[in-house]
Design a binder for these strands. Sequence first.
DNA 1: GCGTCATTTCTAGACTCATCGAAGTGAGGT
DNA 2: ACCTCACTTCGATGAGTCTAGAAATGACGC
Lengths: 113, 113
Amino acid sequence: MEPASVIEALGALAQEHRLAVFRQLVQAGDRGMPAGAIATALDIPNSSLSFHLTQLRNAGLIEQERQHRSLIYRANYPAMNALLGYLTENCCAGSGCEAESACEITVIEGKSA
Amino acid sequence: MEPASVIEALGALAQEHRLAVFRQLVQAGDRGMPAGAIATALDIPNSSLSFHLTQLRNAGLIEQERQHRSLIYRANYPAMNALLGYLTENCCAGSGCEAESACEITVIEGKSA
DNA sequence: GCGTCATTTCTAGACTCATCGAAGTGAGGT
DNA sequence: ACCTCACTTCGATGAGTCTAGAAATGACGC
């Protein structure tokens, strides 16, 4: 994962509504959710939500699929993985991660994606 | 970790220079680095760097300590841990994390901080 | 084809963020 | 006391973001 993508992803999540949207989609799991349901659940005007969904999609954190009249949105777990992987990599790679002061998080799989 | 703090931390890292600064400090480890050295290493004007260091400090991601004439900055590993913990928590808690489509990252220690 | 529903794109306004030179502050040396 | 060095705060400017109503698009049933 390239630094520019990381910044985009972090920036996408660094916003109240977008973090809420992403959490909602993560909880929805593979079924995903239509835009309207998200708007209702989080009480966000349609146009505003659409703006945020676009941001999240540009950052690669969510995916879109048309289903009949609705657009279903889904969290992109691999992208989330890659982001966390990058952060832990940067946390642990350069310094002594064995020390108690350093981070103690391990990526089990998919460090580079 | 509260959502507001998470957003602040993500926002702090979602910026080219600040991500670079944070990485630099992570690599520097417990020794830390004086502001001037960071400015030189990353080629950022002093006043700009100072602005970014303040942002990172407000987000709780780095710490400051005066040492003679210099101000030493250090990465705050527990804060980094807490952030990653929150993200993984949100990734795995609500949905079936056992599935291959879900995330496969595990926090070994310090999930809540 | 037409009306309707779900959603996006357009648009404009308010607000926040990033930049960096210049001036200010605080710690040491002499 | 004075000077210098390391760094921060001030201030102004330009760029980008968030918001949300109104208009446009695309899909479906009849």
